[in-house]
């Protein structure tokens, strides 16, 4: 009880300093984008880290408490957070962020989805009806989402509308320049055959023209057995790949095993902001992704 009153006193004291928009970002990339577009007019809480698999998050009490206070959710959607976010939304009892309200922003609604399955069957592993949800691996999608997010900021916080629009224009300009830089730098990667640990790189492949020829999971989300891995080794020996890539939240073992067996370099890509020491912000995320791929492919 004493903790409660201390907290009460502390919060009342801290009240006047509140930011204009309280944002609950489901993944680090959307937290980073919200900061880019909102500056000091937004107070961003990032619910997950790059070390966590956004499919498998516990609907923790702390998340419910943060969602209770939020003005807006900025999430991927496309069923990426289906295992935990609906529980958080229900328990948070916050009208502003319920499904269908302007306070619920789903980034995947604003990009062209890849890997939309022709049939829905759980026997095919972890399939998403609306397509592959890992849209942040293509920076062109970030530009599209930034456009929609800035519009939504203006809608929810009209008072700071001009600021959001100005920040978005500046961001868009910066992003176009960066896109041209990355696309030029990554030209040697075009058409390179690659192996992936989990098929969460569809958008990266689409952007850089990488040719994914094998996945270390027999089906999406199904951990590989020793038998399946040795099959992959045989395939990679007969049809060499330039690199095998994985995200920070995935076990290093399968890709390192493949690397040891076939001398294909195993590369850890940041996947999201904070995924590697070099991926501290949105721009650095793609700088580091391209740098790491180029270093491995050379």
């Amino acid at each position: 009880m004493r903790v409660l009153f201390c907290a009460l006193a502390f919060c009342l004291a801290a009240l006047p300093a509140h930011a204009d928009l309280k944002i609950f970002a489901c993944e680090p990339e959307w937290g980073a984008l919200a900061k880019e577009l909102g500056g000091d007019k937004v107070d961003v809480y990032v619910a997950t880290s790059a070390q966590q698999d956004p499919h498998h998050i516990e609907a923790r009490p702390s998340l419910i408490a943060r969602a209770r206070a939020a003005d807006m959710l900025v999430c991927t959607g496309a069923e990426l957070e289906v295992g935990w976010l609906p529980a958080v939304q229900r328990q948070a009892a916050n009208q502003k962020i319920q499904p269908g309200t302007p306070g619920e922003f789903e980034a995947a609604s604003f990009v062209r989805m890849l890997d939309v399955p022709g049939r829905l069957d759980r026997a095919d592993g972890d399939v998403h009806a609306q397509g592959n949800p890992h849209i942040q691996t293509d920076p062109r999608n970030i530009a599209l989402v930034a456009n929609a997010l800035a519009t939504r900021f203006v809608l929810l916080d009209v008072a700071n509308g001009a600021l959001y629009e100005a920040r978005h224009t500046a961001f868009d300009e910066k992003w176009r320049a960066a896109l041209a830089r990355w696309t030029t730098a990554a030209a040697p990667l075009r058409g390179k055959p690659i192996a992936v640990q989990h098929p969460n790189w569809a958008y990266l492949n689409d952007w850089l023209g990488l040719n994914q020829i094998v996945s270390l999971e027999p089906k999406p989300g199904v951990p590989p057995s020793a038998g399946y891995l040795s099959e992959v080794v045989t395939r990679v020996r007969s049809m060499p790949v330039a690199v095998v890539i994985r995200a920070p939240h995935e076990s290093a073992k399968p890709s390192e095993f493949l690397s040891a067996q076939t001398n294909v370099p195993a590369v850890l890509l940041p996947f999201t902001v904070g995924g590697t020491p070099g991926a501290g912000d949105l721009t650095a995320l793609y700088d580091d992704t391209v740098t790491r791929l180029l270093a491995a492919v050379k």
């Binding site: 409660l4 009490p61 206070a69």
Partner: peptide, 11 residues
């Protein structure tokens, strides 16, 4: 569900 002013970001 108590607001953060009371719970201090605790559930």
């Amino acid at each position: 569900l108590a607001p953060p002013e009371i719970s201090g970001d605790m559930f």
